[in-house]
Design a protein around this nucleic acid. Structure first.
Length: 240
DNA sequence: TAGGCCATCTGGTCCT
DNA sequence: AGGACCAGATGGCCTA
């Protein structure tokens, strides 16, 4: 694959390319392909101290989770946004948006109903994003990079790109392994069970370069599938 | 201080 | 009608 070069155009995370250094070796290899260079830049590999505790419980500028303590200073946010200021039951006025008039669907709702509906929608969306983040955490847990308390976790985009390249790398390794097995089967007579033929990473059954059921001229069964003695097998060349 | 990343809110769209 | 999904907007936090 391509190697990382300093002058190489990088994606959105190019500025942080140097942080790739702290990635594990496998991860580094996995990143050495295509857009992964950008992922490397995005990957918060460098030791920056523990991940800042952001916490899900903090409502944003228009926050609607009154109970949860807020490490992200929602008070200032609410103040700056002009929302969540005192009377929650005031006429629900959606945040000014630059796109589209909006509010058509709720046009005939009473303000309190609108507010209630909005809060419910917000909560659902928050839950959905939390699920998404949980899934990303699960992904981070199984891809190789420097898992350490002193290393900040991968960003979302870096996680996805790293995972993609890790999959590609594994597929390539599997392919090479398969070829090696086929070669050894020809040379050493190691029988690969047809029923256990693995799937390629694209889902189709792997095609082995031999067929089963042939005679066994070689005592070491190197030709069990090819049916012909192998020049690579010393037993095939032995005199009986 | 700028830039990157993130959480959240929000309106629109599609689907059930 | 309601829920899921998406993308834009906004503001906070952190690091270089």
């Amino acid at each position: 694959g391509r190697s990382l070069r300093s002058g190489e155009p990088s994606g959105p995370g190019g500025a942080a390319m140097a942080e790739l250094k702290s990635l594990s070796g496998d991860a580094y290899l996995a990143l050495s392909h295509g857009y992964a260079a950008a992922a490397a830049g995005l990957a918060y590999g460098a030791a920056r101290g523990p991940e800042a505790t952001r916490g899900y419980g903090t409502p944003g500028p228009g926050g609607d989770l009154p109970a949860t303590p807020a490490p992200r200073a929602p008070a200032a946010a609410a103040e700056s946004s002009g929302e969540q200021s005192g009377d929650e039951d005031d006429a629900f006025e959606p945040r000014r948006r630059r796109r589209g008039p909006g509010g058509a669907a709720d046009g005939r709702r009473r303000p309190r109903e609108q507010r209630s509906l909005r809060l419910s929608i917000n909560a659902r969306e928050r839950r959905r994003m939390h699920d998404l983040n949980d899934a990303l955490d699960g992904l981070r847990a199984v891809i190789p990079y420097a898992h350490s308390p002193s290393v900040r976790k991968l960003s979302k985009i870096a996680t996805l790109l790293l995972a993609k390249n890790y999959i590609l790398m594994q597929a390539q390794a599997l392919d090479e392994m398969r070829r090696l097995v086929a070669y050894l089967n020809q040379g050493q007579g190691l029988a690969a069970p047809v029923a256990a033929a693995p799937l390629t990473h694209f889902g189709q059954a792997a095609v082995f370069p031999f067929s089963a059921g042939a005679a066994l001229p070689c005592p070491d069964k190197c030709a069990a599938f090819s049916g012909t003695p192998s020049a690579l097998c010393k037993h095939c060349n032995e005199k009986p």
